[in-house]
């Protein structure tokens, strides 16, 4: 990791994580702190929003503003906070059940809106907090508590979906490589618009298939394979790989963000503007009703 503008301890939270020892989410927490430190984002200017799940507990373990919201609803919650105060760096953290299951609709719309949000999904291919049921990214025929005879559903491919939804920053990290992941998250925070960082974050307690060794055997880095992140077709091909699993930046394209196009934000964040609007405009609205 490059030099840190702010030391990683800046972001040490009030309590230690209560995740199972060796849970992949530890790596994500560390990478997020490193990413924020590398960009020198003050904890007071950062807002971490989550839903519900083991992974969604992350905002409680980092020193920053945080909202631990409802299951699947982190995206709209973050959207409102972002549009009210565009000076905040808003990061969403959560699980695959939270983001790709119950909250999927919100995520797709946030992508096409190009809201300036960075979404880090701790994808453990299982529902952790509720003790091990199938999630939208659980593989076909995999046995879980809720699929004792094997999962009859095809797993969702989040990266291909994001690319198709017009997401302008699509990346994948692995909890076994914090330095790479920190760079990907920092890139997402710098990106003007919606950034998805999907992370292989093993659940050591309920997923005995998609483990650290499982991923270590399969992952390779796109940046070392000569991948061009401006090439959408190549990104789609990489997202479709299932034997070897690429990590890194799949795709990035710069476009105006939602905030760039919002007329009400032209004069700065609404939260910093005077509470009273334009009295003359109000009086002319009344006059038009007479």
């Amino acid at each position: 990791m490059a030099t840190l503008e702010l030391p990683i301890e800046t972001y040490d939270g009030p309590v230690d994580p209560d995740w199972c020892p060796a849970c992949g989410d530890f790596g994500v927490l560390k990478a997020l702190k490193q990413a924020a430190g590398s960009l020198g984002i003050r904890p007071d200017d950062m807002l971490v929003v989550s839903g519900i799940g083991c992974s969604s507990n992350l905002p409680g373990f980092i020193h920053a503003y945080g909202v631990h919201g409802l299951h699947g609803r982190a995206v709209p919650l973050a959207t409102g906070a972002h549009l009210a105060n565009t000076d905040l760096t808003v990061v969403i953290t959560g699980g695959d059940g939270d983001g790709y299951g119950i909250g999927l609709g919100h995520m797709l719309h946030a992508m096409r809106r190009n809201l300036n949000l960075t979404y880090v999904v701790m994808n453990n291919q299982v529902y952790g907090l509720t003790t091990g049921q199938a999630s939208p990214t659980t593989g076909l025929e995999v046995v879980t508590k809720s699929t004792p005879r094997g999962n009859p559903e095809l797993p969702l491919n989040p990266l291909a979906m994001a690319l198709a939804a017009g997401c302008g920053y699509v990346a994948r990290g692995f909890s076994g490589d914090v330095a790479q992941m920190a760079g990907l998250i920092a890139g997402g925070m710098r990106h003007r618009g919606f950034a998805l960082v999907d992370v292989f974050s093993p659940c050591v307690t309920y997923n005995h298939l998609n483990t650290y060794p499982y991923f270590r055997e399969r992952v390779y880095k796109l940046e070392e394979a000569g991948h061009d992140p401006a090439d959408l077709a190549a990104a789609m091909r990489a997202a479709g790989e299932s034997e070897r699993l690429p990590t890194g930046l799949f795709y990035q394209v710069e476009r105006p963000s939602y905030a760039d196009r919002e007329p009400a934000l032209a004069d700065g964040p609404p939260v910093k503007r005077p509470i009273k609007g334009n009295g003359d405009a109000f009086r002319s609205l009344i006059a038009a009703m007479c």
Binding site: L70, T79, H82, A84, H106, A264
Partner: peptide
């Protein structure tokens, strides 16, 4: 200076409003 947002559903609507109110 009002941001007006049509959302994808009412669940998003209220959460966006709560997020803005919180901020």
């Amino acid at each position: 200076g009002m941001v007006v947002k049509q959302c994808e559903d009412e669940i998003a609507v209220i959460h966006t409003a709560i997020g803005a109110g919180y901020a």
